[in-house]
């Protein structure tokens, strides 16, 4: 606790600096907590062992070069889906947000409607619409674009709201100042508001990437050979279900944590320059 005492969060203010007795008590509580946590984990491990899930042969699939390569290929496609969806949803999201705060009602209302509608729809429902309803209406896309389109429809609506919040946070004082020196609405937006909003949005971009990477796992449903879908095939081929999916999970977690760390670093850098 001492090391974080100066960061000034509320939880630190709740407690005094601990005296020797409290510290001893804390040590006891820590030990008990550790034991309880370990007991829960051990219990699960024993049960898993009893059903043969801890057999080293089963886990060997996660150190097998071919299998890891197969998952890595899936990860590659996951990243492509993530990148493409992020790029498209960011562009579309910014346009929708600008539309929603536009002064023209004919732009404002449809944009607001689109944002609110797609924010309220589950991704899988959108995906099913694209998979099952659109072919009936005479339009069918390749699997990759089916998935990307579904993710973009949902994610751009979410990003639009983030952008709008970012723009609104700039404050009306600045845009009014811009107008006072004779700038047009477009110039105020382009010269004053958007550059600042963009800087503030850089970390949101990474969050968006993490979001789309997680959502790309619905390739499992459309049969696109991304990471989770390849995990499914691996589990079927090896018969080691838990092991395959835990391996897949590790891939997601590592990639996303790396991305989040980048976001944190960017946030602190943005903070310094702003």
């Amino acid at each position: 606790m001492n090391s974080t005492a100066k960061t000034g969060t509320a939880d630190d203010a709740l407690f005094d600096q601990l005296g020797p007795r409290a510290r001893a008590r804390l040590r006891t509580v820590s030990i008990i907590a550790t034991v309880v946590l370990l007991a829960v984990v051990t219990g699960m491990l024993i049960a898993l062992g009893a059903s043969g899930q801890l057999d080293p042969d089963r886990w060997a699939i996660l150190v097998d070069g071919d299998y890891l390569g197969f998952l890595a290929t899936g990860l590659g496609l996951t990243l492509v889906v993530g990148l493409v969806s992020t790029a498209l949803s960011v562009i579309l999201g910014v346009l929708l947000a600008l539309g929603r705060i536009s002064r023209s009602r004919w732009l404002r209302l449809p944009c607001a409607g689109l944002i609110e509608f797609f924010r309220a729809m589950p991704l899988l429902l959108i995906l099913f619409f694209i998979m099952f309803a659109m072919p009936m209406l005479g339009l069918r896309l390749p699997t990759f674009w089916q998935l990307v389109l579904a993710i973009v429809a949902h994610a751009s609506a979410i990003f639009a709201e983030i952008v709008r919040a970012g723009i609104l946070s700039i404050g009306s004082g600045q845009s009014e100042a811009g107008k006072a020196i004779g700038l047009r609405h477009r110039e105020v937006m382009g010269l004053i508001v958007l550059p600042q909003a963009t800087r503030a949005l850089t970390p949101a971009l990474i969050t968006q990437m993490v979001r789309t990477i997680k959502e790309s796992s619905l390739g499992y449903v459309v049969g696109l050979s991304e990471l989770l879908n390849n995990g499914k095939i691996l589990s079927e081929f090896t018969g080691n279900f838990i092991q395959s999916f835990i391996g897949v999970g590790l891939f997601y977690i590592i990639v996303n944590i790396v991305l989040s760390r980048v976001a944190e670093r960017l946030t602190s850098r943005v903070g310094k320059h702003a």
């Binding site: 998979m131 099952f132 072919p135 005479g138 069918r140 699997t143 449903v221 049969g223």
Partner: peptide
Amino acid sequence: TVTGGSDTREAMLGNHS
């Protein structure tokens, strides 16, 4: 191989995907 699930087959044959 396209693995869209068993209930997409008629639609996919129908529009030649």
